[in-house]
Design a protein around this nucleic acid. Structure first.
Length: 466
RNA sequence: GUCCCCAUCGUCUAGUCCGGCCAAGGACACCGCCCUUUCACGGCGGCGACGGGGGUUCAAAUCCCCCUGGGGACGCCA
């Protein structure tokens, strides 16, 4: 029996969210750190909004990030008997009761309470209804929350947080259709799955006392519970699309590496001295709850971009080449893995922050790009045509086309013309269509002699036809 | 409105638990310089924070209180 069992319990009502991913990551890291078990549970009791597609999307996201679960995925819709049985027990013991108030009525009363500036909650009017009163009517099962006393959440991160029971209300356990609600299933599931550490977002802190009361009513042993802060957008408040993309898989599509996302997420709300770069292995052995921050952190795309650039530089070029192929395809370029592609990638990886940027920069390796008008006007001037022509000839006369021989040939041409000629940028523009690229000799090496000569000649032709 | 949580550079954070080593360290972004055939990478430097007020103490970013600010929760959503 592992001493630590954690879980990630997303509801399949959307893609794996960046905040959810961090919750999963922290749970996973905590389990790994303590040699425990990490369980994946799909909270799909909301049949209206849950879909198979979203389940798959969440699984894809977890897999992409490398967050391997040891057990599951469990689906709550397959465990209904368990919840119903637990509800019956509570009902039989008088710890829960049937309520016949309609949603419309409840909504109306809530509005009234808000208008009176009160905390909106159920007024408990069905509490003392005799069980027969619900016969033949649609009803929900509510938990009988004690009116007095306090419930203390012994939070792993924040210490004791005390709630007055009178502040809590009689939450719905079972809906009219008999399906259980979140606060109820989560207790039954966490208890029956032997979860030892419930680690989740701050937004659940207010739910915890209610859940604790249910644990108690059901006679379940209490897990250890900790709440970490939410991730906010750059403007504060919950992360929204206005701030940055929130779906994890969108980051894959934008050309981020999973190790960059993991590193970034781990450092968002957690720290280990001055260290910024963490491998997954390091994270697994260093992660600790004591160093998780208590205040919400803002999602800063610039830092993610920086980390991604770092991991692109570090990544195995062959792997990078493979990852780049779909991005090339999006740009209409069919490429397949090859030593040549890997070489091209090696010239590009120092200056790309994402695979998308790399693909954009790689285009001229595959086809001649139309020269940027400004660059052409500045560097492909009439007087340069003859020089480019001469260089092309010099290149074709070379016994071997290597960076060293190209450089020598180039110097010779420049020397012959007085030694002050600035020829690098014109060549760069002729070859790549722009003024920024990897080292000129690297570019020519990847392009190959034939193509270099072809593009030089084409540039000469264009200059002269103007 | 009620309840709950939080508070160090613009952002992520170290330091806070066990007050002195902090005239507050690192990273991102930004600016400048160097390297350089361009763009990057890299190197060096700069800008930049303990929200405010009271305590406690020889000493407070660190402990206590109040204020302010930010966030979250108040569903037959999770």
């Amino acid at each position: 029996m592992p001493s630590v069992v954690t879980r990630f319990a997303p509801s399949p009502t959307g893609d794996l969210h960046i905040g959810g991913a961090r919750t999963a990551l922290f749970n996973w890291l905590f389990a790994r750190r303590h040699g425990g078990k990490f369980i994946l549970r799909i909270e799909d009791t909301d049949r209206e909004r849950s879909t198979k597609e979203f389940v798959q999307a969440i699984l894809d996201g977890m897999n992409w990030l490398g967050l391997a679960w040891d057990e599951g995925p469990y689906y709550q819709t397959e465990r209904m008997d368990l919840y119903r049985k637990a509800a019956e027990t509570l009902l039989a013991e008088g710890k829960a009761y049937r309520c016949v108030c309609t949603p419309e009525e409840l909504e109306r009363r809530r509005e009234e309470m808000k208008a009176r500036k009160e905390k909106p909650r159920y007024d408990g009017r069905c509490r003392s209804l005799p069980p027969e009163a619900a016969e033949g009517k649609p009803y929900v099962v509510r938990f009988r929350t004690p009116h007095s006393g306090q419930t203390v959440v012994r939070d792993l991160l924040r210490g004791d947080v005390t709630f007055e029971n009178s502040e809590l209300d009689d939450l719905v356990l079972l809906r009219t259709d008999g399906t259980p609600t979140y606060n109820f299933v989560v207790v039954v599931d966490d208890a029956s799955m032997g979860i030892t550490h419930v680690l989740r977002g701050d937004d659940h802190l207010n739910n915890t006392p209610k859940q604790l009361l249910i644990y108690e009513a059901l006679g379940y042993p209490l897990p250890r519970i900790g709440h970490f802060p939410l991730i906010h957008g750059m403007e504060g408040g919950k992360m929204s699309k206005r701030d940055a993309e929130t779906s994890v898989m969108k980051y894959k599509e934008m050309g981020y590496l999973p190790e960059a996302i993991v590193n970034y997420l781990a450092r968002l709300g957690w720290g280990h001295g001055d260290q910024e770069i963490f491998s997954v292995g390091e994270l697994q052995s260093l992660f600790s709850l004591e160093h998780v921050n208590l205040s919400p952190s803002r999602f800063d795309i610039n830092k993610l971009l920086h980390l991604n650039a770092h991991y692109i530089k570090e990544a195995d070029p062959e792997r990078l080449a493979g990852l780049l192929i779909p991005f090339l395809k999006e740009r209409g370029i069919d490429a397949s893995p090859s030593a040549w592609l890997t070489r091209a990638v090696m010239t590009l990886r120092e200056r790309a922050r994402t695979l998308a940027e790399m693909a954009d920069a790689a285009i001229y390796y595959f086809r001649e790009k139309e020269a940027d008008p400004k660059a052409a006007a500045k560097f492909l001037t009439p007087d340069i045509a003859a020089v480019l022509e001469e260089i092309a000839q010099a290149f074709s006369a070379l016994p071997e086309f290597t960076p060293a021989s190209m450089e020598a040939a180039l110097s010779a041409v420049v020397e012959k013309r007085g030694g002050t000629l600035k020829i690098h940028q014109p060549i760069r523009v002729a070859l790549t269509g722009g003024t920024a690229s990897p080292g000129l000799f690297e570019v020519m090496d990847v392009l190959g002699r034939e193509e270099v000569i072809r593009r030089l000649s084409s540039a000469v032709k264009r200059i002269r036809s103007n």
